[in-house]
Amino acid sequence: MAKEASDLTTIDLFVDEKRPGRPRTNPFPREVQVKINKRNQVKRDKNKGLKRVEFKVHHQLFEQLDDMAKDQGISRSELIEKLLTEALQAPV
């Protein structure tokens, strides 16, 4: 019996064939890779002296910050850090 690639009833004949696509280079599943990458990112940030701050803002303020950051050619995070620094240095 000849093997036909389009034959779905004899799929067991094709188990040993390699599938096209990018070869797997990392032995870990994707979920584990994401955790490892996040842990490494936190370590890099810590070595740079960065600390994570999280807060919620209204959608309109978020859009304003986003537009302002794009106009200045910087990230939103850099813009918020700049604004906070300026606010803390301003005389009371």
Results as ranks from 00 to 15, higher is better:
residue 49 G to V: 00
residue 23 P to L: 06
residue 2 A to P: 03
residue 49 G to H: 07
residue 56 K to V: 12
residue 92 V to G: 03
residue 50 L to N: 08
residue 75 S to T: 05
residue 89 Q to A: 09
residue 80 I to F: 02
residue 17 E to C: 11
residue 57 V to A: 11
residue 31 E to L: 02
residue 42 V to M: 03
residue 28 F to K: 05
residue 27 P to E: 13
residue 46 K to I: 02
residue 62 F to R: 08
residue 85 T to Q: 11
residue 46 K to Q: 09
residue 70 K to A: 09
residue 66 D to W: 14
residue 49 G to M: 05
residue 61 L to I: 11
residue 35 K to P: 00
residue 91 P to K: 12
residue 30 R to Q: 08
residue 52 R to Y: 07
residue 76 R to V: 12
residue 77 S to E: 12
residue 51 K to Q: 14
residue 42 V to T: 10
residue 14 F to C: 05
residue 48 K to M: 07
residue 48 K to P: 02
residue 13 L to P: 04
residue 3 K to N: 08
residue 39 R to E: 03
residue 89 Q to H: 13
residue 77 S to C: 03
residue 62 F to N: 07
residue 10 T to N: 06
residue 31 E to I: 10
residue 83 L to A: 11
residue 20 P to A: 01
residue 37 N to V: 15
residue 61 L to R: 07
residue 2 A to E: 04
residue 7 D to H: 06
residue 84 L to S: 02
residue 10 T to C: 07
residue 58 H to A: 11
residue 30 R to T: 04
residue 19 R to G: 09
residue 71 D to R: 15
residue 85 T to E: 13
residue 40 N to S: 04
residue 88 L to W: 08
residue 26 N to Q: 06
residue 72 Q to I: 00
residue 38 K to N: 07
residue 62 F to Q: 05
residue 67 D to A: 06
residue 25 T to D: 14
residue 64 Q to G: 14
residue 63 E to R: 06
residue 70 K to M: 12
residue 62 F to S: 04
residue 6 S to W: 14
residue 49 G to F: 01
residue 2 A to L: 02
residue 12 D to E: 09
residue 79 L to N: 01
residue 50 L to C: 09
residue 35 K to R: 04
residue 79 L to V: 01
residue 4 E to R: 12
residue 24 R to L: 10
residue 59 H to V: 15
residue 89 Q to Y: 03
residue 46 K to L: 01
residue 27 P to L: 15
residue 18 K to P: 08
residue 48 K to Y: 06
residue 58 H to Y: 02
residue 53 V to P: 02
residue 58 H to I: 04
residue 9 T to W: 15
residue 25 T to K: 15
residue 58 H to C: 12
residue 45 D to W: 01
residue 67 D to R: 12
residue 29 P to S: 14
residue 73 G to V: 04
residue 88 L to R: 10
residue 82 K to Y: 09
residue 88 L to N: 11
residue 89 Q to D: 07
residue 62 F to T: 00
residue 62 F to H: 03
residue 28 F to L: 06
residue 78 E to Y: 00
residue 25 T to P: 04
residue 41 Q to I: 00
residue 11 I to M: 14
residue 16 D to K: 05
residue 70 K to I: 15
residue 35 K to E: 08
residue 79 L to I: 01
residue 77 S to T: 12
residue 44 R to N: 00
residue 50 L to Q: 09
residue 89 Q to K: 13
residue 68 M to K: 07
residue 4 E to V: 15
residue 80 I to S: 01
residue 79 L to P: 00
residue 15 V to Y: 10
residue 67 D to H: 15
residue 31 E to M: 01
residue 31 E to W: 03
residue 35 K to D: 05
residue 11 I to C: 10
residue 33 Q to N: 08
residue 6 S to K: 04
residue 4 E to P: 06
residue 12 D to K: 03
residue 89 Q to E: 12
residue 74 I to F: 06
residue 92 V to H: 13
residue 36 I to D: 14
residue 82 K to L: 07
residue 27 P to Q: 14
residue 61 L to V: 11
residue 11 I to R: 09
residue 19 R to N: 13
residue 32 V to F: 12
residue 46 K to A: 12
residue 62 F to G: 08
residue 30 R to C: 01
residue 55 F to W: 02
residue 53 V to M: 01
residue 76 R to E: 14
residue 84 L to A: 05
residue 33 Q to C: 14
residue 64 Q to Y: 07
residue 83 L to R: 10
residue 36 I to T: 06
residue 40 N to V: 04
residue 80 I to C: 10
residue 56 K to M: 07
residue 4 E to S: 09
residue 69 A to R: 09
residue 46 K to F: 01
residue 90 A to D: 15
residue 61 L to N: 03
residue 92 V to N: 02
